[in-house]
Amino acid sequence: MSTHNEERTVLSVLTYNRPSVLLRMTSLFYRRGYNIETLVVCETDREDLSRFTVTLSGDSGIIEQIRRQLLKLEDIVKVDVLQLDECAASELLLIKVRAAENRHDLLILSQACGCRVVDIGQDSLTFELSGRGADVRAFIDKVRPYGILEMGCTGLTALQRGDSTIFDSLI
């Protein structure tokens, strides 16, 4: 039902910490034709629970469908739908850049962008940057002319702002 506005949405999904949860969730996304942009899984401070942070695009009707379908899975405890601008969110980039000649420029650039140098090679520098997707992509664009050797990036992880948590109203 494409009747609502399309926006980037974050689903914060609390699940039981069981081996098949990831498979069950991705199987659901796949067969219903929902497109995931990023997916991050981590433990929580409660031993029996895990948190999945999923970002996706879709109109609010589709997002609501996904939420309802997810809640039908036995292993899923709770699904919070967050708007990206309403949460504290971050992703992590590791990027190895060619730095045989322009080492100095790169170091200044990385400092200006709030990066950390995590490895210094003979002809390369590896930076770590955490932040919003837009900041991360901007940095990648800036170092691209120097020559990106390789990079790895996590998906987004997010918490809702303020005092409320995903554990609220949980039994």
Partner: peptide
């Protein structure tokens, strides 16, 4: 009884 049927 199934919420996911609404508006599907």
């Amino acid at each position: 009884v199934d919420h996911a049927e609404f508006d599907k």
